[in-house]
Design a protein around this nucleic acid. Structure first.
Length: 374
DNA sequence: AACAGGGGCAACCGCTTGCCG
DNA sequence: TCGGCAAGCGGTTGCCCCTGT
């Protein structure tokens, strides 16, 4: 079935030959394309006008940029798509030299999968229901050996404040294609304390599980935490970290809440690429996170892990004592996918903060921090 | 070396939109 | 206001190439 515009004539379909390309280019260079339906006739092509137009726009236009998409372009696509949806032509306008078709193909073949791998709905950029249910505990299994509970003295039964970390990892990516067995709950770090602060790190309580390899993409960390202390002060931070320059913080107040979780610590959790764990440890900022005895027996992460994985472990393992002293009352750490998959605390805050939807605030939005390994 | 499967990409299809008489 | 036409646009298809077995 041909186009209605060319049903009257016999037209060629399929791939364009170099000769056809040459004819079209020459014609348009000489005469332009004021009327596409007239182009094939005048150019001596056995094609319909629509096909000529498509060929010109998507392939022959001299201002087209060929080749793979840059990381910057990729980020732009994601950001604009989050706002505009599948309006490829509009998105392409933000990418000089790129066509809507090219953007669309790139989205479908690459970006879409990556977002899914991160538990994000490519259509809405929000969390997928599966991730949501997992993160809210449906998938948690107390018998899971990869799940740990760290209980300390509860100083006061304060409110729980959600805190979320999500890591774009290869394991998470793989999980999409091959859903994990139900006993493998997502990594959940629920740390209710008096200050309503929760914290964690994807490798801090991880057990390597065969079939769920550790990430190899740089171990980006998505992190959000809100601090609700008794005085009503609120501290929020969010990070979508894939590089050392990609953290943002929003502190409405300091942290005089006695919970022992300082900015430096938060940063240390996050900016692993820059080795801030080391910095934080050396400066004493992150001393004192007690995670319980069970963790002492955890296997060390495999050698050669990429940034964002191992860095946090020493402190988490070796930190002495101060958690309970400072209100780190109870920590329920569930590690899923061997801690290599998405690690999260609470999705509601993430969503309320708009972290997945462009509300990251600070210098650049959260999505911009996604790092891809494509 | 041969084959199968998957991914990427170019092109097509059909609906929508805008313009003009 | 309506109808016809062309262009714009997004979804889908199918081919080709690469990779793994």
């Amino acid at each position: 079935m041909g186009h209605h515009c060319c049903s009257k004539q016999k037209v060629k379909r399929g791939l364009w030959s170099p000769e056809e390309d040459e004819k079209l280019v020459k014609y348009i260079a000489a005469h332009g394309h004021s009327c596409w339906s007239a182009v094939p006739k005048h150019a001596g092509l056995q094609r319909c006008g629509k096909s000529c137009r498509l060929r010109w726009i998507n392939y022959l236009r001299p201002d087209l940029k060929r080749g793979t998409f840059t990381e910057q372009e990729e980020r732009t696509i994601i950001d604009v798509h989050r706002i505009l949806g599948n309006r490829w032509a509009q998105i392409a306008k933000h990418l000089p030299g790129r066509t809507d078709n090219e953007v669309k193909n790139f989205w479908n073949s690459c970006i879409k999968k990556k977002l899914i791998a991160q538990g994000l709905d490519p259509k809405t950029h929000n969390l997928l229901p599966a991730s949501r249910s997992l993160l809210h505990g449906n998938g948690a299994n107390p018998s899971n050996p990869a799940q740990f509970h760290f209980n300390g003295a509860i100083a006061n039964g304060g409110a729980t404040t959600p805190f979320t970390i999500s890591s774009p990892t290869k394991a998470a990516y793989d999980t999409v294609a091959a859903p994990p067995p139900p006993e493998m709950a997502p990594a959940m770090y629920d740390v209710p304390n008096s200050a309503g602060m929760l914290m964690g790190h994807e490798q801090s309580a991880a057990v390597e599980i065969p079939g769920y390899p550790y990430p190899d993409n740089g171990g980006g960390v998505l992190m959000s935490f809100r601090d609700q202390n008794a005085a009503g002060l609120q501290t929020s931070m969010d990070f979508m970290n894939g590089s050392s320059s990609s953290s943002s913080m929003d502190h409405a107040a300091g942290m005089p809440n006695g919970n022992g979780f300082s900015q430096g610590m938060a940063a240390a959790f996050v900016d692993v690429t820059a080795g801030m764990w080391t910095t934080a440890v050396e400066s004493g900022m992150c001393a004192g996170i007690e995670v319980g005895q069970q963790q002492q027996s955890l296997p060390l992460p495999p050698q050669g892990l990429v940034q964002g994985e191992v860095v946090g472990r020493p402190t988490m393992l070796n930190g002495v004592g101060a958690a309970a002293d400072k209100g780190m009352d109870m920590m329920d750490v569930s590690s899923v996918y061997g801690g290599a998959g998405a690690t999260a605390f609470d999705l509601e805050l993430m969503e309320s903060c708009g972290l997945f939807c462009g509300g990251g605030g600070g210098a650049g939005n959260a999505m911009e921090q996604l790092q891809w390994d494509c």
